[in-house]
């Protein structure tokens, strides 16, 4: 590792530190915190109010982690998508980009900050779910829990990559956020659904499909839609391929982050 490379990494760390400061001093963190709190409270309180329970520790975890991807995507929309574009939109690039720092240090710093912030939320969310399992019967599947958490971190990388990509070319933060939201909520789901319905293609490679494994790891099976007709939806139960799901998410992260970096690097102020 050369001294210059080490210094580039040091600068990326400085950028990441400032970015995290930005997250925590901004209003978005409040919005996101409230959303997380609402999801957590609903999942905790509804079974109590309805005098019911999840039935087992694994059921509780499966239910909780199925919302984890929603949180990751929300964080991507709120924080990551605006991370790069804000430097152009708020004209702070005039301060940062004119300093002796390479574009890749800025990019890595911002990506790291997003991943650390979102990752921290996810970790807290998982730990909360794990603590809550003490209210349920059955045994705690440590292996499945760790696998699901690892997959969640892979999802953080993938989602951050897609969000960075939109942020690398959008002119405004709001545009980047809307594009990211539309991509995750509408576009990728629509593409997957159409391919499954009309071409009978298993969309295991979709960034919307792979995060399903966050919950599948607790049952070891994955429902696969094989046919949709006006009245019937045929679903095949297949074995959940955890490694493949993780690889899909990481690959989404790698490809989108590389594309985002090259667009950002050549972008004029």
């Amino acid at each position: 590792m050369t001294a210059e490379f080490t210094d580039d990494l040091r600068q990326a760390y400085v950028v990441a530190k400032n970015e995290i400061k930005k997250f925590f001093r901004g209003k978005k963190i409040l919005i996101f915190g409230l959303l997380v709190l609402a999801i957590v409270l609903l999942q905790t309180i509804v079974p109590i109010v309805s005098n019911s329970s999840y039935g087992s520790k694994d059921n509780l975890l499966e239910s909780f982690v199925s919302f984890a991807i929603l949180l990751v995507e929300l964080a991507g929309v709120l924080f990551t998508a605006t991370s790069l574009v804000s430097e152009f939109e708020e004209r702070t690039a005039l301060v940062l980009f004119t300093k002796p720092i390479k574009k890749w240090s800025i990019f890595i710093g911002k990506l790291m900050a997003s991943m650390m912030a979102v990752g921290a939320f996810i970790l807290i969310y998982y730990v909360y779910a794990a603590i809550l399992t003490f209210t349920e019967p059955g045994s705690f599947s440590t292996g499945a829990f760790v696998q699901s958490l690892a997959l969640a971190f892979c999802a953080v990388f993938g989602v951050c990559g897609v969000s960075m990509l939109f942020g690398s070319f959008a002119k405004k933060g709001s545009t980047a956020s809307i594009l990211t939201l539309v991509f995750f909520v509408l576009l990728i789901g629509l593409i997957s659904g159409l391919l499954q319905t009309f071409a009978h293609i298993d969309t295991w490679w979709s960034i919307n499909d792979a995060p399903g494994y966050l919950g599948y790891v607790f049952t070891g099976i994955r429902p696969e839609v094989i046919d949709v007709s006006p009245y019937v939806v045929d679903v095949a139960i297949t074995t959940a391929d955890i490694i493949r799901a993780g690889a899909v998410l990481v690959l989404w992260g790698v490809i989108t982050n590389i594309a985002a970096f090259f667009i950002f690097r050549r972008r004029d102020f």
Binding site: N18, K21, K22, R25, G26, E90, R91, T92, L94, V95, T98, K99
Partner: peptide, 11 residues
């Protein structure tokens, strides 16, 4: 450098 009127990180 001072390019135009830069905006700083308001926070």
């Amino acid at each position: 450098t001072v390019v135009e009127t830069p905006e700083f990180y308001g926070y």
